[in-house]
Computed example of a mutant assay.
Amino acid sequence: MHDAKAWIFDLDGTLTLAQHDFVAIREELGIPADEDILGYLEKLPEDQASELSRQLDAIELRLARDVAAAPGAARLIRHLRDTGKQVGILTRNLHSVALSSLEVLGIADCFEPEHILGRAEALPKPDPAGIHHLLGLWSVEPKEAVMVGDFRFDLEAGRAAGCRTCLLHEHDSWPGLADLHLPDCERLLVYLQGFADTH
């Protein structure tokens, strides 16, 4: 991972502490428990999907007020930027929520606005379109990039794009999808700095 030129991050649960209670969100929106929220909305008639999307936006904006940084997130992003890496965000949230969260984390200055992709800027993960878009902007080959996240959609998107994948989660719940598994940003930073210190 140390030689990767570009790092693409999920947001909620990866750079921030996980705060989306998806069970509660589904209940609030009246979405069946076994359905992916965005996938379910795509199957609805346009007027119904539009109304539920508006409600989902409001929920996310409400949650954004209480966002908290994951351990080591800010220092990890600054380390990557300071060592000349490209960094981007690919989230299933709103762009405005992502930008607000990055401002709360104190690292909004590390990202160009066009390098922050929400669900309106790219097809939601696990579709790899957002990754391909960012790599195109950076002129970086997929094998030179890492997709980092806390859920299988992040890993599946990275795999589909031909990138390396890094799971940041206490448990390796999707063995075979992650090239690297660490509990959080803090440990990923230690991993990268440790390699730099010995080479």
Rank of each mutant, 00 (worst) to 15 (best):
E28S: 11
E28G: 04
P32E: 01
P32I: 03
A33C: 05
D34Y: 06
D34G: 12
E35R: 15
E35V: 07
D36H: 13
I37E: 00
L38F: 04
G39C: 02
Y40L: 03
L41I: 10
L41F: 05
L41V: 06
K43W: 07
L44G: 09
L44H: 06
L44I: 08
L44Y: 06
P45L: 14
P45Q: 09
P45H: 08
E46V: 15
E46P: 10
D47M: 09
Q48A: 14
A49L: 10
S50L: 10
E51C: 08
E51V: 15
E51A: 15
E51N: 09
L52H: 12
S53L: 13
S53C: 11
S53N: 14
S53D: 13
S53Y: 10
Q55I: 04
Q55N: 11
L56E: 00
L56C: 01
D57P: 08
D57C: 08
D57Y: 05
D57K: 13
D57S: 13
A58M: 10
I59L: 11
I59G: 05
I59Q: 10
I59F: 09
E60Q: 04
E60K: 02
E60Y: 00
L61A: 13
R62Q: 14
R62A: 13
R62M: 08
R62P: 11
L63P: 04
L63T: 04
A64S: 14
A64G: 06
A64T: 04
A64F: 05
R65S: 12
R65T: 12
D66C: 09
V67R: 14
V67A: 14
V67W: 07
V67I: 10
V67M: 11
A68Q: 15
A69R: 12
A70W: 01
P71Q: 05
G72E: 04
G72P: 03
G72F: 04
G72L: 03
G72V: 05
A73W: 00
A73T: 02
A73Y: 00
A74N: 02
A74L: 03
A74R: 07
A74W: 00
R75D: 15
R75P: 01
L76V: 02
I77P: 07
I77A: 07
I77D: 06
I77E: 06
R78E: 11
R78A: 08
R78V: 07
R78N: 10
H79L: 06
H79N: 03
H79Y: 13
